[in-house]
């Protein structure tokens, strides 16, 4: 097996940081001289690199002023604290990437909320007694009154008769001049028991009477 190190030009950094040119192995020198013009260039590069490292370490590390920290923390508290309830709900959600998308998380939170409210109302809904079954009889259709037969009319529509009696009271003198109608029938209330054909007959009766 070949134990000789194989270098790429990009591996130069570790050599530069650790060895002067004179300390390099033969194969390392060959490698270096393949990419650099001379031993002098190698040593210059090494000096520059070490100086860069040293100068960077000595450089004062100072952050931005403290007021920025305070401002950012205030901003954080204002922006991140407001949707407290939603955050609480979201914390329950799985941390898969999909659920990290805000739109999906808000949608999931909304669905959870709606489901929760629905379940709450369902559980707290008062039980209803089953309604008694009522037999509904078909309405009896009364025969239409024959024209001129007052008794059949009164049988069918008592309201009509009452109204007729009221109308039969002699009007005061002021109204006497007007010609009173011969027959006033309020058709509306009797529609329930009358078929369309009967209604037409009644209308015909009315026209005849008028």
């Amino acid at each position: 097996m070949n134990d000789k190190p194989i270098y790429d030009p990009e591996d130069m950094e570790s050599l530069l940081l650790n060895k002067e040119f004179g300390e390099l192995y033969e194969e390392e020198r060959v490698f270096v001289l393949r990419h650099l013009s001379s031993a002098e260039e190698y040593n210059h590069m090494r000096e520059v690199l070490l100086s860069v490292q040293e100068a960077q370490r000595e450089e004062e590390i100072s952050g931005p002023d403290d007021s920025l920290r305070e401002r950012l923390l205030k901003e954080f508290r204002e922006k991140r604290r407001s949707p407290f309830s939603l955050n609480s709900l979201m914390a329950l959600l799985p941390s898969a990437d999909t659920f990290r998308m805000p739109a999906v998380r808000y949608a999931m939170a909304a669905i959870t909320l709606v489901l929760g409210i629905s379940i709450f109302y369902y559980l707290n809904k008062p039980k209803q007694e089953p309604l008694p079954i009522v037999k509904q009889e078909a309405p009896k259709v009364q025969p239409a009154p024959a024209p001129g037969n007052d008794s059949s009319v009164s049988q069918l529509v008592p309201q009509m008769v009452v109204e007729q009696k009221v109308k039969s009271i002699p009007p005061p003198d002021s109204i006497k001049k007007q010609q009173p109608p011969l027959l006033i029938v309020n058709v509306e209330p009797v529609r329930k028991g009358i078929t369309m054909e009967d209604e037409k007959e009644l209308e015909g009766l009315l026209y005849t009477a008028l």
Partner: peptide, 21 residues
């Protein structure tokens, strides 16, 4: 991300000087 202000402050303290530089 879940609203822990102290966690945010710690991140700021760790990284603001380096990022500033």
């Amino acid at each position: 991300a879940k609203g822990d202000a102290a966690a945010f402050a710690e991140l700021y303290d760790r990284y603001s000087p380096r990022l500033f530089g």
